[in-house]
Design a protein around this nucleic acid. Sequence first.
RNA 1: GCGCUCGUAGCUCAGCUGGAUAGAGCGCCGGACUUCGAAUCCGUAGGUCGCAGGUUCGAAUCCUGCCGGGCGCACCA
Length: 590
Amino acid sequence: MLQKVRQQWKDLVEAQLAGYAKELVGDDDAVSSLPPLAVQTPPKPELGDIAFPLFSYAKALKAAPPKIAADIKARIEALSDRPAGQLLLAGPYLNVKIDVAALAADLSREIRSEGPSYGCNEAKRGMKVMVEFSCPNTNKPLHLGHMRNDSLGESVSAILRANGAEVRKVNLVNNRGVHICKSMLAYEKFGNGETPESSGLKGDHLVGKYYVRFAQWEKEDSTAVEQAQEMLKKWEEGEPAVIALWKKMNQWTLDGLAESYRKMGVSFDKYYYESDTYKLGKDEVLKGLEKGVFYREADGSVWIDLADIKLDKKVLLRKDGTSLYMTQDLGTAVARHEDWPFDSLIYVVASEQNYHFKVLFHVLGKLGYEWAKNLHHLSYGMVNLPEGKMKSREGTVVDADDLVDQLTSLAADEIRAKEREGEVGDVDATAHAIALGALNYYLLQVSPTKDMIFNPAESISFNGNTGPYLQYMGARISSMLRKFAEVETDYVSVPFDPALLALEDERELIKVLASYPEAVAKAGSDYDPSVITAYLYDVSRRFSKWYHDNQILKAGEPALVKARVELSSMVLQVLRNAFSLVGIPYLSTM
RNA sequence: GCGCUCGUAGCUCAGCUGGAUAGAGCGCCGGACUUCGAAUCCGUAGGUCGCAGGUUCGAAUCCUGCCGGGCGCACCA
């Protein structure tokens, strides 16, 4: 919306620059070789709303930028038909102060008619995008690292939907392998038939307990790992007792994970299990061999030479003909494309695997899959603690369930401390929503590629730049609108007059609201939820300052009340829309 | 050693497709509640944007080198 206004002015200035160049220099070459016009935002509101820096035209036009700015300004002002707004000179910049009242009028209409879909666009209309995330192991519960993954996966999926894509969220559960056998073995040896029911432990925590137990036992018995490998062999041979134990324990974990996901607001359209996919890919590799894009070593193993992307050689099939991680991922990608012919597939996986995905995508391209060029690895950095890395051996791993519970109980304490139980109604549900808002916002605030430090003390703070702060702004506006609703009948005949929103804070707020669609588009093309979190904070901060300094319901003049209420309700709609993209539950009271 | 990645205020982070005095939050210090919910708002202090070159009218932003942190470099996943 703001984009449109900007473009309008850009076209106009560009056209005038061309005309000006022709007059000044005289030939068409001078016109066609003009540098492109940059569009910027002035650093201070009093300098205008749109800025056109003219430095780069000095050479071509043989004139000083301030003079060019002045001349272009004069030319535009001489036009009879031009967009509403005012031109300002600021040295080498030609700035525009746009007609914010007109913008506000359009914005109000648009937000009212589009509601929850205000900000959405059609950029990816018709595109099928698969998003893979979470991918837990079935030998332990989720921890903080998974939470960053899940937050990103959910958020990116929502963002892509807002950009018009058809999204399918998928999970690939890692339910087989030696590490799974380790917890099985330890359970067999030390479990004494314990169950989630008998122990009172959540299934995934119970299984995790035996994974830890294995690590302990491994130190006492040097044959432990060997025994686990034997168990894996039996699993692969389908030995009934092993399969039965595997099924039982996997189910415990999966039930536990399902509960964690529910608690975290995470869901999937489809689950894939590695036990079904781990043998895939062999055919793909053999096809590649036929095509001559791979080669076979004397020992029978199959390789690809990655010299063309300046990497080493990589094994794709073992000498005994069995699959590897890479083989599996090749096969899984192909199988999924057959399942659901996506245009693009996004893997939300930690940056440790950058190399793996670089190779995977390249190999798929070599195999001739044209969709390979639309595969994307959404790589994210580690989550560390203030003391350093999380280490399972040192017991510093932050458990996902514990964290959510802890935050929920702190939020509940806060509600009680503020004596808001009555207004809030369901304290637990509200506290839980606050906990999720706090967590998702904290995790999504940081650019995905960067490692981040998770400071528990800071994450549980509900003040400052936090999820609850944003939720609070939403709740405040809702509260105010409820009050307004009681007297709304008095205002039905009062029209919304956007010209009354002339304060600087109001102008800025309107512009920010009008730029929301651009934030959604950028978040979508960059696969970056932090664009939305930053946007949310910007809107909230501006709103709270304005709201603090100015009265809304008590503004006096009915027309002014109406205008400010209208602005507030626009802010609320945008907040809610953006909340839904980053996993922050909206609360009408808190 | 090679590759990828990050290095901005005491701490946690924005800003990075080059542009006008580098921004927030936390913390510190100091203000604002008989007034639409103070989970709020305002103000002060705090930065050679890792270092050195280069490109440019202009560099936190682009290029090169160096230094420092992280990750990766298995016929493991």
